[in-house]
C-alpha cells in the first residue's frame, strides 16, 4: 500500500517545529508501524536527510519507550503500543498524521522524541517500598490473597509510556501515578509508607505541571496495558485519607 505521512519535525527543544509530509510506497500489511518508519528513515538517510527521530527499544510492547500520537490517538488506532501496531490497521492511500506526546511536563527533545523524566521523578518521590537489600523475611511469610495479588499485578503492569498523559485532554498523569500507588496500597508490603507515598507522589505530580483529572476515561481507553480507572478512584481515596489522617501538618 501507499501512504502519506504528516510528521512533526522539530530539531530540538528550542526549535518551533512544524509538520512535514512524506510519501511511503510498497508498505506491506505485515510490517509493524515502526518498521514502516525504519524504511522511510533508511530512504531519508540515503538521500542525506536527517531521519525522523522517534523513541523505541524493545519493540515487543513492554519497555514503554515508543510514543507516537498517530491520527489523533496515542499509539494509533489499536489499544497497544506503537511498536505492536501493524500496518494492517491502515488502508491504502491513507494520510497518517504523526505527532509527539504533547504535555508541558513532556518537552519535545527532537521530532517525536519527548522527555518523560517527570515520571521517574514521581517514582523517586515515593513509588517504592523502603527495604534494603538483605534481611528480608522468607517470601512465603507474607501470604497475600490471590485476588489482591492479581489486582496489584494489574496495576503494576503499567509500562510508563505516557499514553495516558498524551490522551488526556488535561495532560493529566493520574492514571500513571494511581497505578503505582494502587499496587503498593493493595499489598501488605506497601502499608507502612502508604500515606506518605500518596501525599508525596501527588505533590510531585502537581509540581511537574501535569493537569487534573476530569474523569473522561480517555487514559483507560488508550492505555496499552488496560490500566483501569478504578486505580484513579483509589488514588483519590488514598490521597484524601492520607491528607486527613497522616501526621504531616
Amino acid at each position: 500500500m501507499n501512504l502519506t505521512l504528516n510528521v512533526w519535525r522539530q530539531k530540538n527543544t528550542q526549535d518551533k517545529g512544524g509538520f512535514k509530509s512524506y510519501q511511503v510506497s510498497d508498505v506491506s500489511a505485515d510490517m509493524s508501524f515502526l518498521e514502516m518508519m525504519d524504511v522511510l528513515n533508511e530512504k531519508l538517510e540515503v538521500q542525506g536527510e536527517d531521519p525522523i527521530h522517534f523513541d523505541h527499544d524493545c519493540r515487543e510492547g513492554i519497555c514503554g519507550m515508543c510514543s507516537m500520537y498517530i491520527n489523533g490517538k496515542p499509539h494509533g488506532p489499536q489499544q497497544t503500543t506503537t511498536c505492536q501496531l501493524h500496518m494492517r490497521s491502515f488502508k491504502d492511500g491513507e494520510t497518517i498524521t504523526i505527532e509527539p506526546w504533547r504535555a508541558a511536563a513532556f518537552p519535545v527533545v527532537k521530532d517525536l522524541v519527548v522527555d518523560r523524566s517527570a515520571f521517574d521523578r514521581i517514582i523517586q518521590s515515593g513509588g517504592y517500598v523502603s527495604v534494603n537489600t538483605g534481611g528480608t523475611p522468607d517470601a512465603n511469610e507474607i501470604p497475600i490473597p490471590k485476588k489482591i495479588a492479581d489486582e496489584a499485578f494489574e496495576s503494576a503492569e503499567c509500562i510508563g509510556c505516557g499514553a495516558c498523559v498524551a490522551a488526556c485532554k488535561n495532560a493529566s498523569a493520574m492514571l500513571f501515578v494511581s497505578a503505582k500507588v494502587s499496587q503498593l496500597a493493595l499489598l501488605p508490603q506497601g502499608q507502612v509508607e502508604r500515606k506518605e507515598r500518596a501525599e508525596k507522589m501527588v505533590a510531585q505530580m502537581d509540581a511537574e505541571g501535569f493537569g487534573s483529572c476530569t474523569n473522561t476515561g480517555a487514559c483507560e481507553a488508550e492505555c496499552p496495558k488496560g490500566i483501569s480507572l478504578t486505580n484513579i478512584a483509589r488514588l483519590n481515596r488514598e490521597y484524601l485519607s492520607a491528607k486527613l489522617t497522616s501526621e504531616n501538618v
Binding site: Y69, G72, E99, A103, A104, A105, K169, N170, F210, G211
Partner: peptide
C-alpha cells in the same frame, strides 16, 4: 499542562 495542542 498542554501549551501546544494536537493537530489531530
Amino acid at each position: 499542562a498542554r501549551p501546544v495542542g494536537y493537530k489531530e
